[in-house]
Design a protein around this nucleic acid. Sequence first.
RNA 1: GGGCCGUUAGCUCAGUUGGCUAGAGCGCCGCCUUUACACGGCGGAUGUCGGCGGUUCAAGUCCGUCACGGCCCACCA
Length: 1051
Amino acid sequence: MTFNAEDFPNRFDHAQAQQRIYAMWEERGYFNSDPDPKRKPFTIVIPPPNVTGALHLGHALNNTLQDVLIRARRMQGYNALWMPGTDHAGIATQAVVEKRLREEEGKTRHDLGREKLVERIWQWKQQYEGRILGQLKRLGASCDWRRTRFTLDDTCARAVRHTFFDLFNKGFIYRGKRLVNWDTFLQTAVSDDEVEQKTVKGHFWHFRYPVIDPQPGEPQFVTIATTRPETMLGDTAIAVHPDPAAALDKLEAELKEKLAKAPGKEKAGVEAQIDETRRRRETMLPLLVKLRDMALDGRMVMLPLLDREISLVADEWARPEMGSGCVKITPAHDPNDYDVGLRCDLPMINILNPDGTLNENGGPYKGLNIQQARKNVVTDMEAAGLLESVEDREIELPHSDRSKTPIEPFLADQWFVRMDELAQSAMDAVSDGRVKIFPPRYAKGYLDWLSEKRDWPVSRQLWWGHQIPVWSQICRDKETADRLIAQLDGDADVAAGRVSYQLELDVEREAAERHDHTVRGAAKVKIPYGTLHVCILAEDDKLAARYEKQGYVREEDVLDTWFSSALWPHSTLGWPEKTPELEYYYPTSTLITSRDIITLWVARMVLTGLNNMGDVPFREVFIHPKILDGEGETMSKSKGNGIDPLDVIDKFGADALRYGMTYLTTETQDVRMPVQFECPHCEELINQTRKNRELPRIACSKCNKPFSTQWARTAEDLALPRGAVVSERFELGRNFCNKLWNAARFALINMPEFEAGPVADSDLAVEDRWVLSRLATVTQEVTDALQEYHYADAARALYDFAWDEFCSFYVEMVKHRLQDESSRVAAQRVLAHTLDVLLRLLHPILPFITEEMWQLLAKAAPRRGLPKPTPAAESIMIAEWPIADAARRDARIEDRFAQFQQALGALREIRARQNIAPKNELEFTVRCSAETADLLQPMEPYFASMANAHSIGWGENVEPPKTNATVSLPGMDIIVDLKDYIDVEAECARLKKQQDKLAGLIQGKEKKLSNAGFVDKAPADVVARERESLAELQQQLETVRTALADMNCKS
RNA sequence: GGGCCGUUAGCUCAGUUGGCUAGAGCGCCGCCUUUACACGGCGGAUGUCGGCGGUUCAAGUCCGUCACGGCCCACCA
């Protein structure tokens, strides 16, 4: 087929091509993978995006990298499966749906009820899942869509249920009263990872609690301080250090040690601390010792306002160097106090309702919210004369990531996964290399986090998620528990392993019984003996009904989203069924994700994989950088600096987006991407700043017309066309695609009646040998780079080769041969082959444009390739990955080219400097060795075609023309006969500058070479190179000096 | 408080195991409508490689330290 310039567009129409090409791939089933024992699998499971909303640029990065890898491996002959899916994202999704419900209908979830709300969320999910999968397709993702999973679908549900049952049965899952981070707005516990600390302005109140029946010599009051006065209503003790003197001694010793090591400017601070410690020992120690003794005697103090007696206890948590040395203990509302409570067997009094108001334990403050209660408590304490003082202070307050409201530590029944053994197994897998993390530094965080082995709280007080498959019954007394257990022991389903049970003893009751706290404590209700939990393996309504009839009640809570995502690599493959997929694809090959979920997700996948499958979920993990905006801030829709990948695809094309993503993937922690608004009127890019990114409308800096942003709310603003948020960073990829497109366009126009066939070595021109040599090198580089996740290296190597070598040199040089009958055939064959290989190397990164060019190339040259032509694959997606042809590597040719390029550059530089029009032919002389002359003289035609210059002399003793411009290069001088073109001043200025530079370099080298240490100790080849280099520099300097003299330049 | 990352041209970033004159893209300056490409071509200018100290014949590269920016983890009444 013949291509004509007229009907061959010089722009790649990405919008039109992407859709058509993607549909073709999908239709032909190229994305599909099925187990095939004859082939090696290569598997990636997608980090399932949340169905909360649309994909952002981070997703574009993450999924581009996966697609690049999966496409490369597919071409390399692996049976490549990319498993797609989405995540139900419990809290996040329920929160957005609830928010809409509130805003649009003024209803809460309780108005709707569990079933209806869940139904609403499913509707939301349907809508967003479709949108997300559509976005992935527009990105070019080659997932096997037939296998799309959702973390809340039936397959995943079965996996969750089996895992939960197994862990329950092994005793790895338990329920306990624990302090949780309570989000009073969403009314659920959130995990530590969903909590962020914020510094806010607060106060520090000092309260006095009266001592009961103070004896002579004993204090009347104990003073404590708090930032949360209302929590005193839940106080159950005052703590003092068990050995305050020793504690102060130890502190002082530590401070002295620190002082010795501290840098000068910090010494004063440490000294002040030491003084303070000494002062405290003098002034406060006797009181603290007295209080300690009282604590050991079991003395009590009176909790004001509620008139409840509480204990004095001795516990190391009370630090003598802090505040008054005494600390109030609120076990139900403070994590540290909770630990004290456990150690000292204190009652735990919860004063809060789930909505954040005070419950009956708050006495007269019942029903108030926290702010009101705080105010009233302070007022009442002041009125009672028990408020000693108030200070202003900045305090760290935990906030919920989701609702942005303050977190209240709250004592609640929660389910936990015991982490000790599981965590250890996941640590071992990374330590012994069964799972390799790239870049390796990220293994440290993974191991550190796991080594704490903190139990994983898995219950969430939500409705959207996997409901915990446990039915529970409270046992008032031991007899009841024994009777129920006996019943379960005789149960056929328990015997058959379909049902498991656990008795949870009530910790408060245990503590209360030992210490008789219930008498004085506030726990008015009788505390039951414990709770019996029954876990049912499979979804079975009949079985459930049977237990419900016996008085067991289904657990309301659902599981943490990460519980189901933790199973993703095996649940998506069908576990617990023994599917052929599971057998064939597990363990998967690589996981590609971002660093913020290494612990939350990666670690947990490893431990559940080991527990359920007995093997790791993936062999390698690649952690990619995070994209920040131009200010170094995280991109987010709420800041207005988020780039929508679809806007980028619309403007620049999916390939440009993908190229940009690949190009920035180095091993760094994060990358900055300055953000612009695109004017919808004139396409001008307007830099985004912290200020303008918050505006609802912006006037274009070029055409001055206004456009709207995501903040537009008024009818007037909304009527304006919207300005997309993009980044000019993607111009790089767009331009690259355009360059490739036009190189291909040129090639295709110039190969009408292409005849396939081999090329004899004797028919290969020097540029053919050169480009084939370079192609072999680049093929190897790209293959290696992708193997090591060095995405940016692959992208750069291809860019440099395609642009600077293939386009700028090879295509330019081959032009005249394509006009010449005798050389045309060989030139076409090499050109077609080179383009073919280049396209295949580029395909994983730029799938659409390479496919388009591949199809066009197939029309012109259906059979092509060196050394022997073969029919091209029907799609580049299923073409074979190129193998570097080592035999084509030719150092001599590459060397010749390097010299040629330098000489050519020198000629062009002289032309530019002397302002000589391209039409005017240059005459030049090259002063160089005979070898160099031999090497370069054959390039004569290219000097003519590429610089419009012809040589008039070569060799060591050439006679340069009188009037000339010179460029002195290592190993040769390029001298151009200038006749009357010369701009003497420009030439002199340049020569002088070069003279100075050379003189400086020579001085440096001479100094180095006169250093005996260098000559003696450095490797001989390094020294020899330095000498050679010095000689060359001196030669160059000589040339420059002569030229300066010849031209009579003023010195 | 602990850990990690970064600091190289105006901007965004490359610089493998220390060793030839530290690079790219964008931007900037000059020239060019050369029949693939102005999303282009040719040429040019621009760097005390964050500071200080050390190891070494030799440091952008290794070590120590400080400063600044960022991220993660843990947090005290």
